[in-house]
Simulated assay, not measured.
Amino acid sequence: MRTTSRRPLVIALYEPRWFMAVLSILRKRNIAFTVFEDENKLPLYSVLYTDYQYFVEKASRRSDILVIYDPMHRCIELERAILATRFKEEYDEIVFGVDPGSRPSVVVLGDEGLLDYQALYSVKDVVEYIADKTQCYPSKKIVVRIGGGFNGWKIALALKKKLKVRTEVVDEWETTPKNTRLDDILLSSKYLVNLAKHRYRDLYAALKIALRRGIEVD
């Protein structure tokens, strides 16, 4: 039975470093969660994400609780827990948008929701970041869209050598944000409202690139 549009997320993690990593991910994405206290205090129809068998056994006393057990601390299992709060098992589409400037920036969209963003330092960093993140998101389809400016084709060709994902090069026209453009204002309020100002410009460009179709790189 579904009582709300989302199930509550509860985390119960034993390993301290993974606990801190999960906190960082959830806070970065503004995902609401609570920390496990007692099985009787779990909200109705919660999703419990845990790495410890003790918490699995505790939660098993509640038939309404969905447990995602992740003793290996895999990012894809955390994402499955997040998806389960929305009654989903996978994304229809994951899109990476890359602003390929002298210091590249990447955003990750899942069904047009912002999942992650990162400022990087080199072509190698971009390729490794995308290769790692493709392992984290259950999805039917993955697309990488890269701006055609400085380093763009270099990143695209390096990525195609490493990963078998659809890669597109996108026109970068009007990807620099302007406060006077309605399109920029609307996109900013939807995706980037919580970003620090010093990161905004490059990540905005990566976002606009992610939302545009480009020319596929063979």
Rank of each mutant, 00 (worst) to 15 (best):
L66N: 10
A158G: 05
A158R: 07
Y137K: 06
A196Y: 12
R61Q: 12
D92L: 08
Y191K: 03
K41V: 14
D116Y: 06
Q135D: 10
E79R: 11
R199D: 06
L192I: 04
E174C: 05
K141F: 10
F36G: 04
I209M: 00
D218Q: 13
G110A: 12
A21E: 15
V165W: 07
V35P: 03
E216Y: 11
L163V: 13
D171G: 03
V126N: 01
V144A: 11
L44K: 14
L83I: 12
D116M: 07
R61W: 09
T85F: 04
D38T: 15
I76T: 09
D38P: 09
R29W: 04
D202E: 09
V144C: 13
V22K: 02
Y49G: 04
S24L: 08
R86A: 15
K41N: 15
R86W: 13
T134Q: 10
R7A: 12
V217M: 01
Y191D: 00
E112M: 07
F36M: 04
I11Q: 03
Q118V: 10
F87S: 09
R145F: 05
K190L: 07
V217W: 01
A12R: 02
M1H: 12
I31P: 08
R27E: 15
L78T: 01
A32G: 11
P16Q: 12
K208G: 00
S63Q: 10
K162W: 02
R17T: 13
V107F: 03
A32K: 13
I31M: 11
M20V: 13
G97F: 01
T176M: 06
V143G: 05
V67W: 00
M1R: 11
L114G: 01
I31W: 08
F150W: 07
A131R: 14
L42Q: 04
Y52T: 06
A119I: 15
Y200P: 00
E93Y: 01
R166Y: 08
L159Q: 05
V56Y: 05
A205N: 03
G148T: 01
Y45D: 11
M72N: 14
V107W: 00
I31H: 09
I142G: 00
T85P: 04
A206F: 00
